[in-house]
């Protein structure tokens, strides 16, 4: 009896480790896929899909330069930004259908707030340096995220109405059945959440990650003063944030299948493969959108997120009207 419980605890810890390592190690690969598919849409060959790994390892080996005026927050922020997606990864169904033991620590709303904690510290660090462009970048980043957050909340409220819960694992189970996956409110929620994800990870309709012109940068603007090891951590953290948000979108809302119900090594390996397959499709979709649209002007972002807000509002309406 005691032995068996010990086995179970070991297994649960191992599963959590595997889940964390999946997020940690595969996140730059998804970024590489997006870059590679982008290059394909632009008729280029593009860098290797492993390029984000090379970049991160190169940066991690270098020393970082710290501005003279900067306080402890400047050195502290990259570590927060790097850790936060990993904490969220404990709350969401990355590989398994059954909840892991940290799953009830917070729901989707909590996960969203934990993720925004990283962004908050990054803004503090950017303001800490006193650089003009950092200030510009952080003010814009706040502008985008304070319009994205109401949408995110409304999406989670709709999800909680439909699935009767906001714990990601339970929502995943609720949507895995055929009854809810084709419901009109579900489709609207999927769309609204995707629009917000694009805004949160700074991809094309909102921000162009490939541009390095100071007047137009949003997300890049905040990390201008960071260098070396700290910049490496920030890049890696951003990749993991993208991975985690896409995982929530894919595994909880769009395709709640392909997760495993047992802890057998083979099944877990299969779940990782399935997740990577979904990620590849999502990366291709993001690259397709980047190929079709230009970056919006700064004040047009309000309209873009306003559209996302109305769509999520429609989801609530269609659900409460019983339609």
């Amino acid at each position: 009896m005691f032995f068996k419980r010990g086995m179970l605890v070991t297994q649960a810890i191992l599963l959590n480790m595997v889940q964390l390592l999946t997020v940690l190690l595969l996140a730059p690969l998804v970024k590489g896929w997006i870059n590679r598919s982008n290059a394909l849409f632009q008729s280029r060959r593009g860098p290797s899909v492993w390029q984000p790994y090379y970049d991160i390892f190169k940066l991690l080996r270098k020393d970082s330069v710290i501005p003279e005026q900067a306080s402890w927050i400047f050195t502290f922020a990259p570590y927060i930004y790097f850790t936060v997606p990993l904490v969220v990864a404990l709350l969401i169904p990355v590989l398994t259908t059954f909840p892991l033991f940290m799953a009830f620590m917070g729901d989707m709303l909590g996960g969203g707030f934990i993720l925004s904690l990283g962004g908050f510290f990054l803004v503090l660090a950017a303001l800490d340096t006193g650089s003009a462009f950092c200030g510009l970048g952080s003010s814009r980043a706040r502008f985008v995220s304070f319009m994205a957050e109401p949408v995110l909340m409304l999406v989670f409220f709709t999800v909680s109405l439909v699935a009767q819960s906001t714990i990601p694992y339970i929502v995943n189970q609720a949507f895995a059945g055929p009854a809810l996956i084709l419901a009109p409110s579900h489709i609207l929620v999927v769309l609204a959440f995707f629009l917000v994800v694009l805004a949160e990870i700074g991809r094309i309709p909102v921000d162009n990650p490939a541009t390095h012109q100071e007047p137009s940068m949003i997300d890049e603007g905040r990390t201008m003063e960071h260098s070396g090891r700290h910049l490496g951590l920030l890049r890696w953290g951003a990749d993991m944030k993208l991975f985690v948000l896409l995982t929530i979108w894919l595994n909880v809302l769009v395709t709640p299948w392909g997760l495993v119900g047992s802890a057998a090594p083979l099944a877990v390996a299969l779940a990782i493969t399935a997740l990577l397959g979904k990620m590849a499709v999502a990366a291709f979709l993001i690259a397709f959108i980047e190929g079709c649209f230009a970056k919006l002007r700064l004040l047009r972002i309000a309209e873009y997120l306003g559209a996302a807000f109305v769509i999520s509002l429609l989801a609530v309406i269609t659900y409460t009207m019983g339609i």
């Binding site: 084709l182 419901a183 009109p184 489709i187 609207l188 769309l191 769509i311 429609l314």
Partner: peptide, 9 residues
């Protein structure tokens, strides 16, 4: 229903 929702979008 689904197609009508997409239509509305």
């Amino acid at each position: 229903d689904l197609l009508a929702t997409l239509f509305l979008i």
